[in-house]
């Protein structure tokens, strides 16, 4: 199973990177998830999953036959963290789409290199509202 896990993790990592190199922010965000799943799998594989039974202590169970619980605990932690980060990335994606009105990575991130606008307090920038035509097309919502 080791090489299956290794190859799967590696391929998913490659796919994740490939997705992060995509032109569309949506796929970049999904790429983060795929890459983080790959890493989780990799951590579990690197910690070995030798053993016949899950790590539960029960009367009569041979402790030596149990699988290594530590990588499992680590991966569990990592999965939840990964989820939290994914949600944040998703909300960045959402907000970006709302503000920029587009999902093209390079076009969005190129804004950073534009010269700083003058006369601005360093507080909230203007432009936090949606243009009318970018609003949700579904009409039923406003009922």
């Amino acid at each position: 199973m080791e090489w299956v896990a290794a190859v799967t993790a590696g391929s998913m990592a490659g796919l994740g990177i490939w997705m992060m190199l995509d032109q569309h922010l949506i796929r970049v965000v999904l790429g983060i998830t795929v890459f983080s799943n790959a890493v989780n799998l990799g951590v579990l594989a690197a910690g070995r999953h030798v053993g016949e039974a899950p790590a539960f202590i029960a009367p009569g169970v041979d402790a030596a036959a149990l699988v290594n619980p530590l990588p499992q605990a680590l991966v569990l932690t990592a999965i939840v963290i990964g989820f939290a980060l994914f949600v944040f990335a998703l909300s960045i994606l959402k907000r970006t789409y709302e503000l920029h009105g587009k999902n093209d990575t390079d076009q969005v991130t190129a804004v950073v290199e534009q010269p700083a606008p003058d006369g601005q307090e360093n507080g909230v920038e203007q432009g936090g509202t949606l243009d009318v035509d970018e609003r949700d097309p579904s009409a039923g919502e406003r009922e």
């Binding site: 290794a6 490659g14 796919l15 990177i17 490939w18 190199l21 690197a46």
Partner: peptide
């Protein structure tokens, strides 16, 4: 970019393999 992504994939695979090739 495809080459870069593939190399990352290969590297990750090999790293894991190298790690599990020896006993824990």
């Amino acid at each position: 970019q495809a080459i870069a992504a593939c190399t990352v994939g290969v590297a990750v695979t090999l790293m894991i393999m190298a790690t599990v090739s020896q006993p824990l």
